[in-house]
Design a protein around this nucleic acid. Structure first.
Lengths: 358, 358
DNA sequence: GTATTGGTGGCAATCGATTGCCAGGGAGTT
DNA sequence: AACTCCCTGGCAATCGATTGCCACCAATAC
């Protein structure tokens, strides 16, 4: 009847505690064992350490009380929070929710949760949020923030935190990363346009300090070359951000400067949206007079008018793989090799591309 | 020289610990005080409890060591995690990111972070994610999940967790809630359409077990009445979900059944997108032959073609207010009154509405 | 000169789970 | 019969910060 004594004792001291969740001591008392024994009985890794009948008694008691180990107490002792910090530049950009979902699902399988920090593309805010994350002692981080100057990554790796990069070429090959094959994606888009007969093609994209911008721009040039297009006819334009309005402005300017352009490869789907607006303003209906190709195949682009032809990147899978890679690294104590995963891209053909006007 | 002794002692036992972050003991030793004293000196609420010179010495030591209190240890003692669980039906729906951002910003000011659970509109997943959240001992919850059967809310309130509801009429007036004035929003949209001369108006929306669907549908009827429209000419159609494809299907059917329809009020912006497609398929160009009004004014709708006329709800502010309400409740120990906040809506006029064809 | 008061800071318990170490007992061996 | 070995489970320290309680000291009052 130790159980009752202790219950009364606790009740006298902290009446409110009795209402709270059961602790390992409650379970141990109900099962008639020591808390330490109860802890071991409930730990699947220690299978066999406690005799079957005892373990069963403990498990039964735990089930009857609805016992769930307090993650806070466990974490204090074990220094493992089962929380992964996810750093995303802009959740309002529809590309990211699927990625985050992939991350969450893969983490959930392993009992982890994702703490998402949305930086809103603002360096100051990124710093603050990352500080908050670090303060919370995440077990690891997934970074999808794209700026090339890696201060955030630097801070994390300096603190020896496990990190996985998403969609971000890194100077440091020692970091595990998941990305999609941008070169192949751009190549497919360019082949499609060239095949339709386009010769004067513009690439309208964001600032070159974003790694995705850099790789795609390089691929734009090199794939054109490989396709036998005249590089002199190519137009490359960097806007200040990967947004629709920047694209609109840039496209309008470019179309005025080089009216011979018949196709635009946009830096991402949002920019393609801005190109739609520019095309309309410039009196160059899409796709009849101007073909537009997006990048990412984010949700809802199939509903646009015209439905967007775009390079599909496997957003959900990218998230999943990133989470798996991180979990793997955590499992190996950080001593595994730094895998870099490249997922395939493909071109999704819809209605925003067609042959150039005669 | 206690400091050195202890350091060596700890080093012998756990060499790796010395590399880790400094603890309150390190600070106390450097300042030459007891850890308890150091803790008090660093607690701003205890201003004055420790004499100024001592407190200053401690603060200096803390600064020199770069001491940051371990949230895990604090949490174990104080039972406050400074984490708020946010339950969202679908992050991929562009309405929600701004709401989440508002929540995050308001929480960040108070030193809290948001743990976002994305249920993907799946009841099973919702159950799992909420269990995970509860296991992590959030201090409170913000629920934006919309289904009327309130099992999730029931589970949270049953556990006496502070909860704030977002955009969700509740049967229980005892719960604090933030929502936007849907009735006024619908009224404004209907007045706009009636003013343009529309008489046969359809409302295409989702399943009536969602509270937003119910209030908007009721407002659709009542505002038509108030505007002197013939209720016999109104068409109300519930689809199986608030998605573009459901809307497309429903709109196509409705336009075939009642060709006299000249305007559609969509259940949300995504459904408006589906209506665009249906209008095109049905040979009813928007806005020349068919006016379409959305709901939410989510990001990027101004870029659609035609740009969407829609009811604006203050998404970011809704998130902010919800967070503030929750923080207020936490501050009052849950004894404050259960405020219900109703934020104003407005109609954003763009290009998807016009007078009905002659 | 003694008593009271108030301010300061130290002591140690506490939150709840985990785990290294050890003791006790049963089984098996010589 | 005695000894060893292993299996099981208990004990208590530990993670790091917080906080109720108490002791000590100085200053003021009587």
């Amino acid at each position: 009847m130790l159980r009752i004594i202790v219950a009364i004792d606790r009740h006298n001291q902290y009446p409110q505690l009795m209402a709270g969740r059961p602790t390992i001591r409650d379970v141990a008392e109900l099962a008639g064992v020591h808390p330490g024994t109860a802890s071991r009985a409930l730990d699947p890794r220690l299978e066999g350490r406690i005799s079957a009948p005892t373990a069963e008694r403990v498990r039964l008691a735990a089930r009857r009380l609805g016992y769930v180990a307090d993650p806070v107490a466990r974490q204090l002792r074990v220094r493992r929070s089962a929380v992964i910090g996810v750093i995303v530049p802009d959740l309002a950009n529809p590309v990211f929710p699927p990625v985050v979902q992939g991350i969450e699902d893969a983490l959930a399988e392993a009992g982890y949760v994702a703490l998402v920090a949305n930086t809103g593309n603002d360096p100051g805010r990124e710093r603050d949020r990352v500080t908050a994350l670090q303060g919370r002692r995440c077990d690891g981080y997934i970074v999808a923030s794209a700026t090339l100057d890696g201060t955030t990554i630097g801070r994390l790796t300096a603190a020896a935190e496990p990190v996985v990069l998403v969609n971000r070429e890194t100077g440091d090959p020692g970091l595990p990363a998941v990305s999609s094959d941008d070169r192949a994606g751009v190549q497919a888009a360019m082949a499609h346009l060239a095949g339709l007969g386009h010769r004067v093609i513009a690439h309208i994209t964001g600032p070159p300090n974003l790694s995705v911008v850099r790789t795609r721009a390089e691929a734009f040039r090199s794939s054109a070359e490989r396709l036998g297009l005249d590089p002199g006819l190519l137009v490359l334009r960097h806007g200040p951000a990967l947004t629709a309005s920047c694209a609109q402005e840039a496209a309008l300017a470019v179309l005025a400067e080089v009216p011979a352009i018949t196709a635009i490869l946009a830096g991402n789907d949002l920019m393609a949206l801005g190109c739609y607006a520019a095309a309309q303003q410039a009196g160059r209906p899409c796709p009849a007079s101007l073909s537009i190709v997006g990048y990412n195949d984010m949700p809802f682009v199939e509903w646009w008018r015209p439905a967007l032809t775009t390079v599909r990147i496997p957003q959900y899978e990218i998230g999943q793989e990133a989470a798996r890679l991180l979990l793997e690294q955590l499992g190996s104590g950080g001593h595994g090799p730094a895998k870099q995963i490249l997922l395939p891209t493909s071109l999704t053909l819809r209605s925003s591309t067609g042959p150039p006007p005669a």
